[in-house]
Amino acid sequence: MTAPQSPADRPSDRPSVPFTKGHGTGNDFVLLADPDGNAQLDVSRVARVADRHHGVGADGVIRAVRSQHLEEGRAVLAEHPGTEWFMDYRNGDGSIAEMCGNGVRVFVHFLVEKGLVDLPVGSSLQIGTRAGVKTVTRMEHGYSIDMGPWSYLDAEAAEESAADAVVRAEGLADPRPALSISMGNPHTVVAVRTFEELADLDLHRGPTVDPHPVHGTNVEFVAAHEPLIREGVGRIRMRVHERGVGETQSCGTGACAAAAAMRAWAGPEGSDSWLVEVPGGVLAVDFVMTEAGAEHVVLSGPAELVFDGELHA
């Protein structure tokens, strides 16, 4: 028998904050609208909200704040005056992350559905992130994001697309070479031989990466379809262990990094268009040249809002 709650303990008597739960191919988020930047998102509060047993449960927490009310947002506005909204993203453990490709799509869908922006199909919107400004275009069945350029984390690896790290993981019989790629956040991509080997990985325990990046890294394990390229499109399957979170159903920037690595490894037989299968669905990744002659990565996929609720302080 439990003791009755006092009135002060009852959730209905405490301040509440509206939230929305959303996901992009199974990569799920708690979204908060905080236009004026008044909410306090400390590490412990974010971790409590993201906890799947004692909180709402999510891979990350996203705060929608007008750029002018956040230091990083003001820096974005100085170079991109039209970037009204900033995506303040936190990993499930409360740590700050630079960017989340699935999160950007869900973030923009949240802004649209809550009436915070007007974005008809075919129109684009600039969003501020800690990895720079991202241009998001609304499609008939989802959103595409110009993720900007990708790069190798190791300059020497760029010359030969060679391995620059070694990864160990539960379920792998031996250490595997890996390629480190930046999409504004760090990734380490590992190729495995078969879909069966990919499925047998135990990612409850984090992989070890040597050398280990100072700020950590997301680790993507990738297996190729046979043939790799069909009708001009590359097809791969991916699982990911995200820093600060663990294994997730999907990772947008991880899909971009995996496609970049596989394209590099494929050499002349590679493609500029890829479909990346993740446990939560399928993402499209395209490599396009801008008018300025720079190669950008475009990520496309769905975004869904699942339910609304209230967080009690």
Rank of each mutant, 00 (worst) to 15 (best):
E159C: 01
M183T: 13
A158Q: 01
A155N: 04
S180F: 01
Y152H: 14
E159G: 12
M183V: 11
L153Y: 04
P175A: 15
V166S: 07
I181L: 06
W150K: 03
V166R: 08
P149K: 00
A178E: 04
E159V: 09
A158S: 07
E170I: 01
S161I: 04
S180T: 15
A157K: 09
E159P: 00
A173I: 06
A155S: 14
S180V: 12
A178V: 05
G148P: 10
A155Y: 03
Y152M: 14
A173G: 14
E160R: 15
S180G: 08
A158T: 07
A157C: 12
A162Q: 06
A173Q: 12
A158V: 03
P149Y: 01
A162P: 02
A163H: 11
A173C: 12
W150C: 10
A178D: 02
A162I: 02
E156I: 01
E156S: 15
W150Q: 10
A165C: 09
A162H: 09
L153Q: 10
A155I: 13
S182L: 09
W150R: 05
G148C: 12
E160G: 05
P175K: 11
S151D: 12
L172S: 05
M183I: 09
D154V: 10
A178L: 08
P149C: 01
A169M: 14
L153N: 11
D164I: 11
A169G: 13
A157G: 11
E159N: 08
A173L: 15
E159D: 06
A157M: 09
S182M: 13
L179P: 00
A165V: 02
A169D: 05
D154S: 12
R176W: 06
E170N: 13
L179V: 15
V167T: 07
E159Q: 15
V166N: 04
A169Q: 06
D154I: 04
A178F: 10
E170H: 14
D164Y: 06
L172Q: 00
S182G: 08
